[in-house]
Design a protein around this nucleic acid. Structure first.
Lengths: 157, 157
DNA sequence: GTGGCTGCAAAGCTTTTGCATGTTC
DNA sequence: GAACATGCAAAAGCTTTGCAGCCAC
């Protein structure tokens, strides 16, 4: 119990323990690089870019290449281990929390936070019939000022 | 009345007629390039990329440069004339419809459609207090199969 | 042993930038 | 005429690709 910070989603230890199993189920071999990428992502809430993941783990894997990190993140996303967060600009950002939730993007500092809406209606309901579109999932992205930037007076010139 | 296709938002003619005024209010000079970019965007519902805008209007402006289109789209977005639609990959896409609405992205063909939710609760309500985040706006992006791809059986192997 | 994975380098796209020239107001 | 826009070319990011050698299974 002590390794759970908020009790919000599976504890880090448990997720790491299951990782090899999940890899094999997905037809992916368990390598040091994949372990390192997943551990890093699972241990942060900062939604890092591929470059940031690379910088964070290259200490333990001196020969690691950024291209490998890109490939691994892409495989993880398609296997459902991680989520790629739509960011309107620049580099992609990844999130190891795959449970349904949304995101807030700070317009001043660019930080991304997870958002769990307390009670959320199913927005997709009724859409399919009306438009012929078959909704598989949807993302909500909130834009605004994060707590830190608001206190610092940033973003309101 | 005849130029309105659906009555959903201001007619094309009217929007074009107001364009010079809006430009000057925003401190932007009225140039042929800006007119061409805005007309093209206002006359489509396909959410084109900068490249597509460029290709569509270069016929009438032989010397037009893609860099100019990028600059103009960026200015338009900051002036509130157009919206930049967050697309998880590749090139940015722009929308001349700025009235509140959401988007559907087809996972098979990549097409983007506007979505007007019939009745939508304010998702941002209650968020600020809880998280310290000050929400300015939010976007909803639906992912799934568009009508055409669904009929064609694409996207479901 | 074999198929898949990694590392490296190079290429591919999208987007931005600097600057001389041209245009709007 | 002054300030701002454009066009061009070059550069800067981010991401993908091809391939030889290496590793997990």
């Amino acid at each position: 119990m002590q390794s759970e910070t908020h009790g919000e989603f599976p504890a880090l230890k448990e997720r790491l323990a299951h990782f090899p199993v999940r890899c094999r189920s997905a037809g992916l071999k368990v390598t040091q690089q994949r372990l390192a990428v997943y551990s890093m992502l699972a241990g942060t809430v900062s939604h890092p870019t591929p470059e940031e993941v690379f910088e964070a783990i290259r200490g333990g894997l001196p020969l690691l290449s950024l291209a490998t990190v890109y490939k691994i993140l892409d495989q993880f996303q398609r296997a459902g281990f991680v989520r790629k967060v739509s960011t309107e600009g620049q580099a992609a950002r990844y999130d190891a929390k795959v449970e349904p939730h949304h995101h807030m993007v700070c317009t001043a500092c660019g930080a991304i936070q997870d958002i769990q809406l307390p009670s959320e209606p199913d927005l997709a309901q009724g859409l399919s019939a009306e438009s012929g579109f078959q909704v598989a999932r949807y993302d909500v992205i909130f834009h605004g000022l994060c707590g830190a930037c608001r206190k610092a007076g940033r973003g309101q010139p």
